[in-house]
Every structure is written in structure tokens, then in C-alpha cells.
């Protein structure tokens, strides 16, 4: 049996986790700067810079995570005329739940997927791929959108979007340091070798930590809870069940998704279920419960 989490508790936890995550991010960046700075011999200014930088990017991630995520995903705003069912179904759920109408976007991709982002229910956006909208029926789109709107109602979206931006920033910074070691280290070979070693070690440590952070933040419970809330919104489990069934059949990878944004989507956008290297990566980054489990739970409601 699933543990019982009520919506108030769940949204309270999301706020706590968001704060914890931002503090953790700042601490990590300062520590990283301290280690790198120690090797260069100027840790004070680098630590100061890292502090300002991490503070700034936390601020940005709070206010602009949705815009960053939207532009990373190449999402375009939609009108009612273009996507009648998508637009009106979200409008209807908004009427029924009192959640303000989110802004709507599409990703031009034949893979089927959807996600919600934003910092609170007054600043939220729902995104669907054109593949999803064209291949699902109205009642199925309704199920998927009810799932996304319950992420908005449960205050999941802030945490999930902040995770996306902060994790993306860490990946970016580690990447920068790599490049600096290759292009800027000519004058001082001794130091740059040291940096190389440290960066290699740090990168090896950072990757699994990031994976762990995403997993912690995006507990699988959240997806089950959103599915259950979706049914409460639409009173029609069959819409979501058959939508999930179709999403499960879809084997296409979503091009615009990356590791930092994968957890936002309703189903895993990478679709690597086969054996081999892909499977390990998938397990490490598995932020979504298996669709079969979700369908079983919905069928039992």
C-alpha cells in the first residue's frame, strides 16, 4: 500500500525541499570554488565569486526557472484555435479545481510527452508535445492535463523546475572548468595537472550525487499522488489509464529533453528500456515509476 500523504503535507514538504536544495547548491558551489581556488592559489576571490554566482543563480532559478525550462525545451505558446482540445480541457479542469489557468505551450516533436513548470499556481505553464496532442483523444488529453495540473496544485512544479535549473548549472560549471583546464592551462603545467586530477575526481563524484539529488527531490510517490489527484479532478480514471497505455507504447525519444529536465515529464523522455549501457544510465536516473505500476494503481481505484 502507498503511504498516505495529504496535499497540505506534500506541498509543505516541497517548500522545505526547495529551500534545502538551494542551500545545498550554494554550499556545493562554495566548496567547489574553494578546492579549485586552492590549487590556483587564489581561493578567497574565487569563493567570493562562487558565493555571488550561486546566490544569483538560485535567485534566477526561483523566478525564471519556468522560462529557462521552456526555452530549453523549445516550447511555443498555443492558441485555442490551433489546439482546441488541449486548450479547452485545461480550461475545464481549471474551472473545476479553482487552479488558475496556466499558460499553454507545445513542443514540436512527434514523441508523446508533457510537463508542467512554474514557481506557483499563479505563474505556471503546461507543455505538451504535438505528438501527444495529435495521438490522444480528448478524454486522454484530459487525464494527462489533470495529472499536470495536480503537479501545479501540489506545488511540485517549483521544486521540479528549480532542480532542473540548479542541476543544469552544476553540470555547466563542471563543464567550464574542464574547458579551462584544456585551453587555459599552458603557462603553469604543474597546477593545471593538479586541477585536471581534482576535476576528474570531482566530476566522478558529482554525477552520482546529482542523480541522487534528483531522485530525492522527485520521489516516485509524487507521480502516484499526481495520478490519484488527476482522477479526483476528472472522476474518470479511464482517460489517464488509456493515455498512459499509449505513452508506454511510444518508443520515440524526445530530442529536447536532457538529464536536468527529464524528471519534469509525465513519462521518462529517454525511453531506454533495453539492456546494456542505456539500462544502467536509466536505472541511475530513474525518476519515474514504471508505467505498468501506475496503470495498475489507477485500475484499482
Amino acid at each position: 500500500m502507498a503511504e498516505i500523504v495529504n496535499f497540505y503535507e506534500s506541498s509543505q514538504k516541497n517548500i522545505e525541499k526547495t529551500i534545502l536544495l538551494i542551500v545545498g547548491f550554494i554550499v556545493f558551489m562554495i566548496f567547489f570554488a574553494y578546492v579549485i581556488g586552492g590549487l590556483i592559489g587564489d581561493s578567497t576571490s574565487l569563493v567570493f565569486f562562487a558565493f555571488i554566482f550561486s546566490l544569483g543563480s538560485s535567485f534566477v532559478s526561483y523566478y525564471y526557472s519556468d522560462k529557462i525550462v521552456l526555452s530549453l525545451s523549445k516550447a511555443k505558446p498555443v492558441t485555442k484555435e490551433e489546439h482546441f482540445d488541449f486548450y479547452t480541457v485545461v480550461e475545464n479542469i481549471s474551472i473545476g479545481t479553482g487552479i488558475p489557468m496556466p499558460k499553454l505551450y507545445v513542443i514540436d516533436d512527434t514523441a508523446m510527452n508533457a510537463f508542467a513548470t512554474g514557481r506557483d499556481k499563479n505563474h505556471s505553464a503546461v507543455v505538451a508535445t504535438t505528438g501527444l496532442l495529435s495521438r490522444l483523444e480528448r478524454s486522454e488529453i484530459e487525464g494527462v492535463m489533470a495529472h499536470e495540473l495536480s503537479h501545479i496544485g501540489n506545488k511540485d512544479i517549483l521544486l521540479m523546475s528549480v532542480v532542473a535549473v540548479l542541476v543544469g548549472t552544476i553540470v555547466l560549471v563542471v563543464d567550464w572548468v574542464w574547458r579551462i583546464r584544456f585551453f587555459g592551462g599552458d603557462d603553469n603545467n604543474k597546477n593545471s595537472n593538479g586541477i585536471f586530477l581534482i576535476v576528474a575526481v570531482v566530476s566522478a563524484i558529482v554525477a552520482p550525487i546529482i542523480a541522487q539529488v534528483i531522485k530525492l527531490a522527485i520521489s516516485r510517490q509524487r507521480e502516484f499522488l499526481a495520478d490519484a489527484t488527476a482522477v479526483k479532478f476528472t472522476r474518470n480514471p479511464n482517460g489517464l489509464i488509456s493515455a498512459l497505455g499509449k505513452l508506454n507504447q511510444d518508443s520515440e525519444k524526445l530530442e529536447v529533453a536532457n538529464r536536468a529536465t527529464a524528471h519534469l515529464y509525465i513519462t521518462n523522455p529517454f525511453k531506454v528500456n533495453s539492456a546494456g549501457f542505456g539500462k544502467n544510465i536509466n536505472l541511475l536516473f530513474s525518476t519515474h515509476p514504471p508505467i505498468e505500476d501506475r496503470i495498475t494503481r489507477l485500475s484499482n481505484m
Binding site: D85, V89, N92, I95, T97, R235
Partner: peptide, 17 residues
């Protein structure tokens, strides 16, 4: 017809609320 479907959906959501 699709506008009618949508309208009746909206009525039932509003009733539920």
C-alpha cells in the same frame, strides 16, 4: 459539435465545483 461538447464539459466541471 466540439464546442457543444466542451460547453457541456464546462457545465459539469462547474457543477462539480
Amino acid at each position: 459539435m466540439r464546442n457543444l461538447t466542451d460547453t457541456s464539459d464546462k457545465v459539469s466541471y462547474a457543477r462539480r465545483l
